[in-house]
């Protein structure tokens, strides 16, 4: 029995995500990622159910597991009640746990997700925070966003927000004691440990890749993972 498979089984999402797959391709037919990446969720399911240690290890280090957009369209349709999207979530968790995520271009992007989304959650209590979404990094947000950027507070004010204010309302300042509770939850439940692992393995990888690594987003490694695309992801 594969050790990695046993690890995956510890994740309830994996237990929910795959019972037995019949390779019918219903998931792939409806998968948004399979349309635009060289990706096949059917094969993901088949690979994990092989319980082959080497194959699963390769999967955990592969680009493949990072293509899914977690829209969960596959769950609606599977005739066996499986959900490749949930399998993917379990694989991604394990890949980060073991540090395998840094072996792929797409996997390395987890540092971005950790520092940006993770950072916003712990700093502001929101998953997204407009001040970090500038048109310098998100040009497709367009001229209207440029205009908002020039007037963050005033536009929010116009639309009934309570930007950085006390009490209730849109984009209010979430009280420090509430944020402390969230941070404590992260510590108790393994969220902080996950973050630390992502940092540690990314730092090692940056050294191996000879890219400058530092805190924040203005460093070579971070900018590399954010924008680099080897353009082979949708080639057979």
């Amino acid at each position: 029995m594969s050790q990695l498979y046993n690890k995956l089984l510890e994740d309830v999402r994996f237990q929910e995500g795959i019972k037995a797959c019949i390779n019918c391709g219903t998931c792939t037919a409806i998968c948004a990622a399979a349309e635009f990446y060289n990706y096949d969720p059917r094969i993901i399911a088949d690979t994990v159910q092989s319980r082959n240690e080497e194959k699963i290890e390769n999967l955990l280090k592969s680009e493949t597991i990072w293509y899914c957009g977690e829209c969960m369209s596959c769950k609606t349709r599977c005739p066996r009640g499986n959900a490749p999207g949930l399998i993917i979530m379990a694989l991604r968790a394990l890949s980060q746990e073991l540090g395998y995520f840094v072996e792929s271009e797409k996997g390395r992007q987890q540092l971005f997700m950790k520092r940006v989304v993770g950072g916003w959650i712990l700093t502001y209590g929101y998953c997204l925070y407009l001040e970090g979404i500038g048109t310098n990094m998100y040009a497709e947000q367009g001229p209207i966003w440029d205009w908002r950027q020039k007037n963050w507070g005033k536009v929010l004010d116009r639309l009934g927000a309570n930007y950085k204010g006390e009490g209730n309302g849109i984009l209010r300042k979430i009280p420090e004691e509430a944020l402390d509770e969230i941070r404590k939850i992260f510590e108790v439940t393994g969220g902080t440990a996950r973050f630390e692992k992502i940092e540690k393995f990314s730092k090692e990888k940056a050294e191996a890749m000879n890219l400058k690594f530092d805190d924040g987003i203005d460093n070579e490694y971070f900018q590399h993972i954010y924008s680099h695309n080897n353009n082979t992801h949708n080639i057979e």
Binding site: E35, F36, Y37, N38, A139, E140
Partner: peptide, 14 residues
Amino acid sequence: MKDFGFTINKDRQI
């Protein structure tokens, strides 16, 4: 045409 740093992925459906 503006460069956003990425292009629209081509569909690989048959």
